[in-house]
Design a protein around this nucleic acid. Sequence first.
DNA 1: ATAACCGTACCACATGATATAGTACACTTG
DNA 2: CAAGTGTACTATATCATGTGGTACGGTTAT
Lengths: 125, 125
Amino acid sequence: MFSIDLTSRVPIYEQICKKITELVLNGTLSENDQLPSVRSFAKDSGVNPNTVAKAYQELERNGIIYSVPGRGSFIAKQKMEEFKNNALANFDIAAVSAFDVGIPPDELKKRIDKIHDNYRKGKQL
Amino acid sequence: MFSIDLTSRVPIYEQICKKITELVLNGTLSENDQLPSVRSFAKDSGVNPNTVAKAYQELERNGIIYSVPGRGSFIAKQKMEEFKNNALANFDIAAVSAFDVGIPPDELKKRIDKIHDNYRKGKQL
DNA sequence: ATAACCGTACCACATGATATAGTACACTTG
DNA sequence: CAAGTGTACTATATCATGTGGTACGGTTAT
């Protein structure tokens, strides 16, 4: 269910955080959905329970999930505003980098349409 | 001349690479301009010569600079196409992330105009 | 030629992040 | 009570990063 690349230079716990955050964003996981336990997740993906616990704690700090000792870990009610602000901040940085290498605003606008078309098609699969 | 943050979680050699790449992109450094020697750079910025050497070797692998033993390190002839492709690839990723959190294409387009205005103003300073 | 500088290549060492392994505790559910 | 849960430790190993030192060969200017 959760694909983890053990050979990547990206820390495993970071991959887990990113993956779960993705699943929340695209609607696969919703509020109060229960996550796998740290032990079962660890067993299924072949990593150490401590590593999964670290990822869950990181996610809890970021308000993505909440954990209850004895019960489990669950998806939290999301603050979409923060997600949007983060996405826009990253978008700004990418746009400025594009301007730096001489790409004009019009080309970026055209590109947005293209990406959005592909995005909708991808969603239909 | 080169501001390095010794306390950052980002590796020093990576900061050096990014900084020099920036200076090339914005035109501060041009083809065949000579860079500080690994020793003088290290002394000025308070890091180890080995760390600067590592950064220079990384830059050479990326085709940003070229080094000649006995003479020094210099800015290489840049392949702008690669820079543009990288910038566009990053832009695509940022745009998709924005779509993921429900930001519509039109809002991104408006944002591009805003960013571009600020970008031009920033360039005039 | 000599001295000074250049990039480069080592080696040893310290540190921090990452990951594993094992154990233990308190809590909740059946 | 038993099983499963998150959490908190300790210890250990590995890797990336950074430092310090030394050395070699090439280049430049005196």
